[in-house]
């Protein structure tokens, strides 16, 4: 049994404690927005936030997550897609196949939390998710747009 706080809701889930968090989210919690890509924390498709930190959930046993820790998935990033990162992604029409994009968005949102005005080098260093369709330049542009929007709305 694992007690987890997912998108603000505390849930008791009957699962083997060694099960990776990714599969608990997808199969027990029914949150399939977080994707399986590699299983070894290489590609980033499974990125979620744990206490605000971008975390690759595919190689993290659920037992390593405390009940008090806040897990946020793409479904919980905002209620209606209104997070500045999602809005920037929409404005620039970033996704192609879209499979990696939930992980990209979660990684980007965490980056902007810790570094509100990331430089190109910050983005290159922190966004190491794999995209095979080739959205990297639009991901970069959308992160910058989200940073501008967030800072403008804070000033306003």
């Amino acid at each position: 049994m694992a007690r987890l706080t997912i998108n603000g809701e505390t849930r008791d889930i009957d699962v083997d404690p060694e099960t990776p968090l990714l599969w608990v989210l997808r199969e027990q919690a029914g949150l399939t927005g977080t994707k399986f890509g590699c299983g070894i924390a290489q590609c980033g498709a499974c990125t979620v936030h744990i206490d605000g930190v971008a975390t690759r959930s595919c190689a993290l046993p659920v037992s390593a997550v405390e009940p008090s820790q806040q897990i946020v998935t793409i479904e919980g990033l905002s209620e209606d897609g209104s997070h500045p990162v999602q809005q920037a992604w929409l404005a620039l029409d970033v996704p192609q196949c879209g499979y990696c994009q939930a992980g990209m968005i979660m990684a980007a949102a965490a980056l902007l939390n810790s570094t509100p005005k990331p430089s190109d080098d910050d983005i290159s260093a922190e966004i190491t998710n794999i995209c095979r369709c080739g959205t990297y330049n639009r991901v970069r542009a959308a992160i910058k747009l989200a940073a501008e929007t967030a800072s403008a709305s804070q000033k306003g």
Partner: peptide, 14 residues
């Protein structure tokens, strides 16, 4: 695009 930004796009694995 929109469904892909909020985790609602259903792929085969989903």
């Amino acid at each position: 695009t929109r469904d892909k930004l909020i985790g609602k796009q259903i792929y085969g694995v989903d």
